[in-house]
Design a protein around this nucleic acid. Sequence first.
DNA 1: GCAAATATAGAATACAATTCTAGAACATAA
DNA 2: TTATGTTCTAGAATTGTATTCTATATTTGC
Lengths: 190, 190
Amino acid sequence: MSQTKREILNKALACFMSKGVEHTTIADIRKASGISVGSIYHHFGNKDGIVVALFLTGMQDHAMQQENALAQCGSAEEGVKTIVRCYIDWICEHPDWARFVFRYRSFVENSSLGEQNDTHKRAHFKRLKSWFTPHIDSGAIQRLPFEVYHSLIIGPAQDFALRWLAGKTRGELGDYRELYAEAAWLAIKT
Amino acid sequence: MSQTKREILNKALACFMSKGVEHTTIADIRKASGISVGSIYHHFGNKDGIVVALFLTGMQDHAMQQENALAQCGSAEEGVKTIVRCYIDWICEHPDWARFVFRYRSFVENSSLGEQNDTHKRAHFKRLKSWFTPHIDSGAIQRLPFEVYHSLIIGPAQDFALRWLAGKTRGELGDYRELYAEAAWLAIKT
DNA sequence: GCAAATATAGAATACAATTCTAGAACATAA
DNA sequence: TTATGTTCTAGAATTGTATTCTATATTTGC
């Protein structure tokens, strides 16, 4: 990716996080980045294009970290707990990205550019599935419809994270890392 | 609430759900409802005002159903499971409202009109807390930081519901009603 | 029946996304 | 090296849409 594109994305993220997507204008991004309106449109097509590009960057970064961590895990228990820990760690380390991703997820999913996201997501899920299958077959994990595992493992941490990112919790997300890791394992172990 | 306001909200919801908030214009709502631009602004101040009003209507409807159902429950187990069932039932019965609420939650929370929502939410949580406290004191439910209960109880169902509403699941949300009710109880019982 | 407040209407305004036109930088091949 | 096409940058012009404004109607309280 070119230097220019990166610069646009960086400054756009800063604008989006401080004023919200709907209240930042292309002129704001032009001012912040010093890059002309024409150039911005050349690279991203329209404002939604910038949002989607930022979203995909964030999601892919997290997916990669998660898959790398999972590859190190031998047991089902370690794997499941690792997914939760990795999720929480990513949010704690990149709170701005996380806020962005949560806030504009449905925007991206409902946008015409959202198919790219679907494609990546499906590929990611497929890889997760192939990690899980042996542990289900071995009896370490309950056999459930595949589509519910994600919700049982990530759901609780995700709900709390959303409130934590909004500054609406007393405790720190990081302090509940093990609580949510344990809860995930309890929910799906046999 | 006046007939006019209701009519605006109804037609606005239809527009928002079919084109998304960002792509429906005030002119669209005027055409759909037959009510003039001036009148729309008189009642809601601006476009965000319509979004927030719709959001609050949806949330309050669900909160009320939940509290009514909870009031009927004697045991901790029934109470916790009722919360989950009630949540899933509401989504299945009002999928459009649910889509709207999920999609624009962070929009409302980050808007200047979002304080109204906070106020209602706090009051609702307070009432939930007073229902729960005796069951924690009696030892039926694990003693945990209060702020994590919500995530453990609702988190999984919420995550799945979001995908179901987007048409991205094989199974029906309603078919997993008991699965998520059981999971919630398992997560917080002693 | 008369103010005052509230509600409706649609035209006028202002602001912001997007498109357009022109030219600069860059690559590639003769 | 020059010719030629492609990608990139620039900012002005256009277009679409939220919001405001002014005027008129309707309802409410006295």
